[in-house]
Each structure stands twice: as C-alpha cells, then as structure tokens.
Design a protein around this nucleic acid. Structure first.
Length: 258
DNA sequence: ATGGTAGGTCTCCTA
C-alpha cells in the first residue's frame, strides 16, 4: 500500500498536477491539505475518472481544507475540531484492514515567534498541546498520521539549523512540542525510519529566485505511524521533482510504502 | 535588516 501526503495550495488550480501525481505514482491513498475549496465546488468528476472512487473531503472558502482520495473504501469518515475552532485542519477515515488515517494541517503560525504578541503562533502551540493529549489514546491502534505539520523537527530537516532557530517552523518550542506529540502517541517517523541520515526537505518558498539551486528547504510534511504497524514501513520518498512542475505547489509530495 | 511570491477573494488575508 502506498500513501502520499501533499499540501496542494488550491486543488482546483492544481487539479492537473494532482491527476499527474495519481497517474505517475498510483498511490492507494492521497491526502491533500490546503485544498482551498468549498465542498460543493470539489472536482469530484475528474478524480472519479482517475480511479479514485472513494473520497473524503472537508473544505471551506479561501483557506485550509482537507481531502483523502482513495482507491479502496474509506469508512467512518470523521474529524475533530481543534483549539475550539471549526476550521478545516483535520480529516480522518478508516481502511478495510482497520488502519486509521489522520490527515492534518497544523497552523503555520505567522511571523513573530512569541505567543504573547502573535495570536497565530499561540494558536499553533495550542494545537500542538491538543495533539499531544489526543495522541495518548492512539498508541495501541494501527494508525497513520500524515500532513503539513508546519514544523521541521530535526537539524537536517532545514537548510541551516542555526539560522532558522528563531524562524517559525524550527523554533525550539515547536520542535520540542512536536517531539512531545511523538512520544505521547508512540508515533514513529516513517520517512526518517527509511531515510535516517542527511538533509531532507519537502517545502521550498515561492520567494526564492531559484528554489532548486538555492535549495533553502524545510521538511514540513510528515508521515508517522503508530508502533503496532511500524515494521510494515518499507520505503519512503520525497518527490522533489514535483516542486519543479508547471505552476507548482510550494510543497512536494511525501510518499511512504507499507 | 529587508523584501521577496502565490492563491483566493473583494481589498487584504494567509502562507
């Protein structure tokens, strides 16, 4: 089984890229974030024709938005509200074999790394606290957590550790917070399980003149599994070339095979 | 220290 997570940054604008990914990679399950698409405008027909007959969607106008596209049935489609909000940052479903899939879009957190003056950063830290508390109950279930977590936890998940210590996505309070979530849930980083060494990124800013040459990336997108299924992880890849496709997302797809 | 790009929507917000 192959699962892919991708922050698509508008599923309608980039539908051709989604179809290309599905054709080239043929994942069993594709989890999208930032669809920016209300449910009544979701491009069902094209995805149905691509063979993804099972779709869970949860969108809103303009911001956020989640989707799970699958070749196999999706059961018990559900979501939780986080930090007392109803924004579309979580969507979950269960596969035939009982594996739970949780698709997340953690708040980016704004620019100033101080929760006292930056409400968006406070929101992000509150989200992490709730994720930690929720994770305690996931340890014994066969679960996969994927998504744009907007945190690059390791030194080699960013292009320059020291230069990014005060930059949101790599501040100690975030990286330690994410580590606490992993410990609480017994989550295993499936990508680093397969690629334990070296620089690895899944996001490159639109603002760079030449993202590929500069290569100032961060690993913001993740695929985790709980302990009961960690030995099933067989391969992991970041599809870096998708960042170079025509009119790309600023995120590359992250792929795990189990 | 600064400004750089992109998408959606209604003039600016979020990333």
């Amino acid at each position: 089984m192959k699962i892919i997570t991708w922050n698509i940054n508008s599923v309608r604008l980039r539908l051709p890229l989604v179809l290309r990914l599905l054709a080239e990679q043929a994942p069993d399950v594709l989890c999208l974030q930032e669809t920016k698409c209300p449910d009544d405008k979701f491009p069902h027909e094209e995805l149905e024709n691509a063979g993804y007959h099972h779709r869970a969607i949860r969108g809103e106008k303009g911001y956020n938005g989640m989707a799970i596209l699958s070749k196999q049935p999706l059961h018990d489609i559900r979501h939780l509200n986080w930090v007392g909000r109803e924004d579309c940052r979580h969507l979950a479903a269960t596969l035939d074999d009982g594996t739970h899939i949780h698709n997340f879009y953690i708040p980016a957190g704004g620019d100033v790394a101080d929760p006292e003056v930056n409400d968006k950063f406070a929101h992000k830290l509150d989200f992490l606290d709730e994720l930690k508390a929720w994770s305690v109950d996931q340890t014994d279930t066969p679960s996969i957590l994927v998504g744009d977590l907007n945190i690059a936890p390791r030194h080699d998940d960013v292009w320059h550790h020291k230069q990014l210590l005060k930059i949101i996505s790599h501040t100690p309070v975030e990286t330690e917070g994410l580590e606490a979530v992993m410990v609480a849930g017994g989550w295993q980083d499936a990508v680093r399980q397969m690629i334990p060494e070296g620089q690895l990124y899944s996001w490159w800013s639109y603002r760079a003149k030449d993202w590929d040459a500069a290569d100032k990336g961060r690993r913001l997108d993740h695929i985790w599994v709980t302990s009961p299924i960690k030995t099933r992880v067989k391969a992991a890849t970041v599809l870096r070339q998708a960042r170079g496709w025509e009119q790309p997302s600023d995120h590359a797809p992250v792929i795990v095979e189990m």
